[in-house]
């Protein structure tokens, strides 16, 4: 840790670090954290799941996590390519703080928190507060991220992830949406969480949309859901080679609609299967 003061820099999978390296740029001490066992692996602790900082996307895909993590796993499968998934880590994705980081919307939809290891001990920050801007995070010199913490969620939670790009594989998102929807025994939505990425400097939740979903029957959402552009108007997309700002808003609304329908559908399936188990 002491190396992290001064000119030290944490590196993990290096899939963001090396492509960003400029010729001639000064490289300080590189601190490779991928061999620290405490930072790796996924396990359940008390009231949350702990995903070690250097957990790779491939490890995440392979882990038998509960259904609520489906959205996160789908995102993991869409990160770059197998090569990138084998090296890239979940904390690296968050710390790189790209607006297009695929891991962020599903983690926001899961109310994830970031465990920061400081020279004095550790602190926990909400992911929403951790990423503060494009390539900006709430990390002081000498600190590193040790884990992502995901609070345990109701069993009847369905989640989804949809990524929009101009090609298959190896593509930076034009927009992506993740939804996590929990229902009660009657199939009523108790907690809808939807997050959109690539359409604002930092991926954000869609509180208005969530409010409109809460209290509705999940089944009726599956049958019919409209999401208007106005409902996602809080987004502030940029125009770039991947798409116009107007296009991004429309795509975001449509992706929110589809992601919510998928998550609601999965939640009702979960409900049916837990019902079946209880009945046995």
């Amino acid at each position: 840790m002491s190396q992290l003061d001064g000119d030290g820099q944490v590196v993990a999978g290096c899939t963001d670090f090396l492509p960003g390296l400029r010729r001639g740029s000064r490289i300080g001490t590189l601190v490779d954290i991928t061999r620290i066992p405490e930072l790796r692996g996924i396990r359940i602790e008390m009231d949350h799941w702990r995903i070690g900082a250097t957990t790779t996307w491939t490890e995440l895909i392979k882990h038998p996590l509960p259904k609520a993590f489906e959205g996160l796993k789908l995102a993991a499968r869409e990160v770059g390519s197998v090569q990138i998934q084998n090296s890239g880590t979940i904390a690296g994705n968050i710390c790189n703080a790209s607006p297009a980081a695929d891991g962020v919307p599903p983690l926001l939809a899961l109310d994830a928190k970031v465990e920061v290891c400081t020279p004095a001990g550790s602190r926990v920050v909400d992911l929403e507060d951790f990423i503060t801007g494009v390539r900006r995070i709430a990390l002081k010199p000498g600190e590193l991220v040790s884990a992502i913490l995901v609070p345990s969620v109701a069993e009847s939670t369905g989640s989804s992830f949809l990524k929009l790009g101009s090609r298959k594989y190896l593509v930076i998102s034009i927009a992506m949406v993740s939804a996590a929807i929990s229902v009660d025994r009657s199939g009523t939505i108790t907690d809808a969480r939807i997050a959109v990425g690539s359409c604002s400097p930092v991926a954000t939740r869609m509180p208005e949309l969530e409010k409109a979903l809460n209290g509705r029957q999940a089944r009726s959402v599956v049958d019919r859901l409209e999401v208007t552009v106005d409902q996602v108007a809080s987004l502030a997309p940029i125009k770039d080679v991947r798409g116009s700002a107007e296009y991004r808003i429309h795509a975001a609304a449509e992706l929110c609609r589809r992601a919510a329908i998928q998550a609601a559908g999965r939640a009702t399936c979960e409900l049916a299967s837990t019902d079946a188990e209880t009945a046995e």
Partner: peptide
């Protein structure tokens, strides 16, 4: 930069980009 995969090698059996 990880974008073409031409440099792929196996590390402990898993494909990764040698350039990354």
């Amino acid at each position: 930069a990880g974008d073409c995969g031409a440099c792929t090698v196996l590390i402990n059996g898993d494909p990764v980009c040698a350039c990354l």
